[in-house]
Design a protein around this nucleic acid. Structure first.
Lengths: 217, 217
DNA sequence: GGCATAGTTTTCGTATACGATTTCGTACCT
DNA sequence: AGGTACGAAATCGTATACGAAAACTATGCC
């Protein structure tokens, strides 16, 4: 079974660097030197440069002319912008996908949410964060508009890259969050109208942002 | 006064090609050949390629591996996706910027809107479309969240590139549109709450989409 | 010691070159 | 005539190379 590499080198470089940013190997502020990355991957600098510029377009890295790229996301203001944008996009995505969510989806989401509750007992913030993403994925992944879905994914990626620096796990907020998840599931189960679901999903994220802001001031 | 070129060649190429797409010189389906564009601009292919990929990320061109780039946007489904996404984003942007809109802004928007009414009399769809963008710019341009504002701009750019092919000017809808504009201005003047403004702005775009869908079926 | 400055190093930006892939045209076979 | 195979042309993908800009360092002056 020979390792079949997928896509162009530019593609591979994009995936490789993005993975390192999202999973935290490259933390915000990390300096991305084209030649170094190219050597690591065994490519030339051209496809690597293309990958970096693409990551810049998604907001994961900051690029400065004739200086270079750094993993972005230290600024709390950016966190606020991202959360606010995501609250809007994700709220819409959840509302649009709600009618397409079946009983199996609900059951899966509920199982994930209960596991999140366990994480609160054993204090496992890392797993909690992962499960949180899994939970919300169930809610928005059936969104029939691919543009909106793409924007949701981008928002989550940015947050993933921020989590180790800006984000701090707030147990109190986490507990509320789990309860809000259950409430969201019941709303969807009950066939609530799109507007109600959208507002609830948006509010859910806004509350997380508020908790963050409250803690930093 | 020597023409001071701004930014890198990649930057210039991006701006040049984008302008040609948005103003309709390159219509949807137009084949973008790297070498040809490079020669036209007097650059090598490398910065041009970077520009094209960037435009791809914004949805203005479609890129196929080992084949090339074409100006995108023929598909009516794409139009639907874009309009739906924009209705959400623009609605939010308008609601967020509403509290920051002053009397001067309102007056300017109202003047633009009255000129749009004139365009209906003289049947000038091109100018109408331009004024329509000007009008909405006043409403969302003060949005304090740059991410959201950026998404609004991207949506408008995509629509601009689509207008000559997919979009057809519908006089009946245009007239309604002007009236809705006035209603929006009054809402903002009256200091309506964010939710009301958001819903109205969103509905305004949704109605345009509906008119398009009604005409094609 | 601190600051300005010149030289060095690092890193980016882009031109050029060439191999890889797709597409298109043409000749051949059935 | 229609389809297939082969070859030529067009176009992309990426490596290499070199010039340009910025960052860093060391040196001399105050």
């Amino acid at each position: 079974m020979t390792e079949t590499v997928t896509g162009s080198k530019s593609e591979q470089a994009y995936a490789a660097v993005k993975a390192r940013i999202v999973d935290g190997a490259y933390t915000p502020g990390y300096r991305l030197v084209l030649a170094k990355i190219a050597e690591d991957l065994g490519f030339s600098v051209v496809p690597v440069r293309e990958a970096i510029r693409r990551l810049e377009a998604e907001g994961l890295v900051t690029f400065e002319r004739n200086v270079g790229a750094t993993v972005s996301g230290i600024d709390p203001t950016e966190y606020l912008y991202t959360m606010q944008t995501l609250s809007i996009i994700e709220g819409a995505a959840t509302a649009l996908s709600a009618p397409l969510i079946g009983a199996a989806d609900i059951a899966r989401a509920r199982a994930v949410n209960e596991e999140m509750r366990d994480c609160l007992e054993h204090f496992d913030p890392v797993r909690f964060t992962q499960l949180n993403q899994d939970f919300h994925s169930v809610l928005f992944e059936r969104c029939p508009n691919p543009h909106i879905l793409d924007l949701v994914h981008r928002g989550w990626n940015r947050l993933a890259s921020l989590r180790s620096s800006t984000f701090r796990f707030v147990p109190g907020r986490a507990r509320d969050s789990v309860d809000e998840h259950e409430a969201l599931l019941r709303l969807i189960e009950s066939g609530a109208d799109a507007d109600t679901i959208e507002k609830a999903a948006r509010q859910h994220r806004a509350a997380t942002l508020d908790a963050y802001l409250a803690q930093t001031t």
